[in-house]
Amino acid sequence: MNTFLSVDNIQMIYQTPTEETEAVRNVSFAVEKGQFISLVGPSGCGKSTLLSAIAGLTKQQRGTITLEGTDVMQCRDKIGYMFQTDNLLPWRSIYKNVVLGLEIQKKLTKENLEYADTLLQRYDLWQFRDSYPNRLSGGMRQRVALIRTLALKPELLLLDEAFSALDYQTRVKVSGDVYEILRKENKTLVMVTHDIPEAVTMSDRVIVLSKRPAVVQKTVDIDFGGGMRNPAAVRTDPRFQLYFNHIWKELT
């Protein structure tokens, strides 16, 4: 298979008036189309910084990040980003939140609006389209945030600790929903998480980063057999514990 996303020899340095901090050092990896990749590592190791560079929101000091051979800065409209919190605008209805990205990118075409409607219907939020975010539960709001991102039809999805603000039960349920939605929509996923079970159950590959400055410490391929999986159900698979232990050992 061809490489879809290529992260090549990235170095990222933060400058402040008092000091200079190297957040990421010589990180390289490649992602194929349709693959789900997780980045795990100790708190503050530079995972989110790396993700923000992949999104084209921050510029790295050295190295290249390309999507199908083009610099990510030139193809930001192909990348969707989901944050730790849903970041819905409280004064906008659910529907108006979903089409926010389309409005900004001036893509309010009939076809795109129909697709946004389809997503709302497909993922059980149609009846809430005229409600405001404060009427929805945390899990539902996060689903709205995902639909808002998907409405832009991105080819690459970046999830930055997207479920960590949810309670455990909701988190397992929503991560399962998101996995299913992204597989069905045939998206490529790179997610940052500090939750090893989440990384193992949702990914095809887990990249373990070291403490700051982040370097790739280990890459673990995840295989539960078959294509589509149920992230909640694979937690009882004997291989889950093996993968968990392997990654845990790398992190400690």
Binding site: R76, L100, E103, I104
Partner: peptide, 24 residues
Amino acid sequence: KKLLITLQSFGADKKQIFTKLVMP
């Protein structure tokens, strides 16, 4: 700031950030 970054992630320019986020 989180809302600001969200709009930036959609590629919003400064005018859009002001009219769609900062003012409301």
